[in-house]
């Protein structure tokens, strides 16, 4: 069964421009689905629709088999939502924040204390348990926001960049926990800018840009699609912008990107490595430049993302 079914979803905030522009995809029950895309791509907007915070301007969206425009309240009973936007009761302690949240979710009194104690222990909040949310660090607030959502059970969890601001240990701890939730049948819809995380956590990912889906598949399949591709990183001294120009005009089907300064390398994703090398050589001879750094590596999820988004921006 599908937990999420989106068909031709369009959303406009101002009535003129569609920031989500014809999305269609399904997420299966028990799946961890990663939603990737650059800033402003429309990820949070999509999550707002899926969590019934805003209405679709056009298209149909079903969550847990229910239409988001008609049965919002019923949907919200069964989902958990960690928004990108931070939120907390600023004048209450970490612990009281959790207790109030448990009350809002109507968790039976007999279970509340046990659950909260467990979560505080598991996610290492004991030290700040009695500290007011106004006086803890930003990463700690994010942790509070994440952990309180785990007080109640949900069939479907929406996580909008959940790990932002977390230290590596907290991050790992949390992702592992999400994985175990999925094993027990929770469906997870997840956005992140950290592609290693997506690689670690997700069964399938969708890549969105300017409100449209450009790729949607399992991570293995996506990598296989770009199997022949290699990522070349090259750093030169004199005129990186000229090298980039050359590569762009002569290397058919490649994606070339870089900020063209002396610190960050030009990045090329292509299946024609020898051609690329030739162009680089030619540039070095012509300009009398020297090669500062060159790296050729196998395609990672990051490169797939880069290529999908890049190809579309080159159009």
């Amino acid at each position: 069964m599908n937990s999420i079914e989106v068909s031709d979803l369009k959303v406009s905030y101002d009535g003129k421009k569609y920031v989500v522009d014809g999305l269609s995809f399904d997420v299966e029950e028990g799946e961890i689905f990663g939603f990737l895309g650059p800033n402003g791509a429309g990820k949070t907007t999509t999550i707002r629709v899926l969590t019934t915070l805003i209405k679709p301007t056009q298209g149909t969206v079903n969550v847990l088999g229910m239409d988001v425009t008609k049965r919002g309240l019923e949907i919200r009973k069964r989902i958990g939502v960690i928004l990108q936007q931070p939120s907390y009761e600023w004048n209450l302690s970490v612990e009281k924040n959790m207790y109030i949240y448990a009350t809002l979710w109507n968790i039976p009194r007999s279970q509340v204390k046990k659950r909260i104690d467990e979560l505080i222990e598991k996610f290492d909040l004991a030290e700040i348990r009695k500290v007011s949310a106004a006086d803890i660090s930003i990463g700690q607030r994010r942790r509070l926001q994440l952990v309180r959502e785990l007080i109640h059970d949900s069939e479907l969890l929406f996580l909008d960049e959940p790990t932002i601001g977390l230290d590596p240990i907290a991050r790992k701890n949390l992702l592992t926990y999400f994985k175990s939730l999925a094993k027990d049948g929770t469906t997870i819809f997840f956005t992140t800018h950290n592609l290693e995380e997506a690689d670690f956590l997700c069964d399938r990912v969708g890549i969105i840009n300017h409100g449209r889906l450009y790729a949607i598949d399992s991570i293995d399949n996506l990598k296989a699609t770009y199997e022949g591709d290699r990522t070349i990183e090259v750093l030169v001294n004199k005129a990186p912008e000229r090298l980039a120009e050359k590569l762009k005009s002569r290397l058919v089907g490649a994606v070339v990107d870089g900020t063209f300064n002396k610190e960050s390398p030009i990045k090329i994703v292509t299946n024609k490595v020898p051609d690329a090398m030739e162009i680089i050589n030619e540039y070095i001879k012509e300009e009398g430049d020297s090669l500062l750094w060159l790296n050729i590596k196998k395609t990672e999820l990051e490169d797939v993302f880069f290529k999908v988004v890049g190809e579309q921006q080159n159009e």
């Binding site: 969590t51 019934t52 915070l53 309240l73 919200r76 009973k77 989902i79 939502v81 928004l83 936007q85 931070p86 939120s87 907390y88 009761e89 600023w90 809002l104 979710w105």
Partner: peptide
């Protein structure tokens, strides 16, 4: 005003309340 500011309003709207 403060629920708007602290993000609690949007969070509560995503919970089972009208």
């Amino acid at each position: 005003w403060s629920d708007k500011r602290t993000g609690m309003l949007e969070q509560i709207f995503s919970m089972p309340f009208s």
